[in-house]
Amino acid sequence: MNTLTSIFVMGVVAAGTAAVVPGAADCLEDRAFESVAVTQDGQPRPLLPGTVIRLRIAGGGLHAHAGGNLIAAQVSVEGTHLVVTDLHTADASYGAEQRAQDSWLAEFLGAGPAWTRHDDELLLRVDGTEIRMAGRPESDRPLTETYWLLESSSQPGSTPVPARVPAHLVFQDDELYGTLSCNWLSGRAVVADSTVAVDGLGTTKRACQQEDIMLEIAIFGVLRGEVAFDLDGDRLDLTGPDGRRLHLRAPF
């Protein structure tokens, strides 16, 4: 299974030059950031090749990504620090190096980083470790190579998307993969102008809670055969052959 190599984290500003902005929560709300430098004790901190850390804070929630599992948490702003609680990650099977990098980012965020912002640049700092980031342009997201986070399903009687482990989809190289909140899926997905032909979907076989099972049924009810897609900025709607829909958003 391919991995989506992108990561999100907030930052980019020179220490000592940025001032804390009044209305702190507003200046971080619903903005996507991506890393431009990561240092530890003034020296570059090695990351896996191709890593870009990406992050967004919106509606009291935080999503971050460092090339492997998605990190999600609740977040608030208290003065010059982020207060991060209820932090959790998806549970996909990546290699030891990627798992270690994901754990490092989760620990960094869970420690409640100090933050400063100047214009469109943000710096996050925990002790001697700094992540410098720049705001990501709010342009239209392509269907392929984008991390699509499931927000809701239109299937009657389906339960809300469980918040503890976000469900997501990625379209890449005529392939579809992602999480179903509990299990992982993968299959073939050939993209045309306004449709994607999906077949051969399979999943891992974990024992899941009832709400996870209901969500999987809703997702599989849409992802079969010719699926229509509608892109609008960072929003994606997928409509199955019988009219049922999945509503997704690019978190960063």
Rank of each mutant, 00 (worst) to 15 (best):
I7K: 04
G11W: 02
A14F: 08
A14K: 12
A19F: 11
A19V: 09
V20G: 07
V21R: 14
V21D: 10
G23C: 06
A25I: 11
A37K: 06
D41Y: 08
Q43T: 02
R45N: 00
L47P: 05
L47N: 07
L48A: 14
L48W: 05
G50M: 01
T51I: 04
V52Q: 13
R56K: 14
A58K: 04
A58H: 14
G59M: 14
H65V: 00
L70V: 09
L70P: 04
L70M: 10
A73L: 05
Q74D: 09
V75D: 08
V75M: 08
E78K: 14
T80W: 12
H81W: 10
D86F: 04
H88M: 04
A92D: 11
S93Q: 12
S103P: 03
W104F: 13
L105I: 03
A106I: 01
A106R: 15
A106N: 09
A111E: 13
A111C: 06
P113E: 12
W115V: 07
T116N: 08
T116P: 00
D120F: 14
L122P: 00
L124M: 10
D127H: 11
T129D: 01
E130D: 03
I131D: 02
I131K: 00
R132Q: 10
M133G: 14
A134S: 12
R136S: 06
P137V: 13
P142N: 08
T144S: 09
E145Q: 11
Y147K: 07
Y147T: 00
P156V: 02
G157E: 07
T159Q: 11
Q172A: 01
Y177R: 13
S181M: 02
C182T: 02
C182G: 00
W184C: 06
S186M: 15
G187A: 02
D193R: 14
S194F: 08
S194A: 11
S194P: 01
D199T: 12
G200V: 05
L201E: 01
G202R: 14
K205Q: 07
Q209S: 06
Q210H: 11
Q210E: 14
Q210D: 13
I217C: 01
F220L: 14
F220I: 10
V227E: 09
A228V: 04
A228G: 10
D230Y: 03
L231K: 12
D232G: 09
G233K: 07
D234E: 14
L236N: 12
L236H: 10
D242Y: 01
D242G: 08
G243M: 12
G243Q: 05
R245K: 15
L248V: 06
L248C: 04
A250C: 15
A250W: 05
F252I: 11
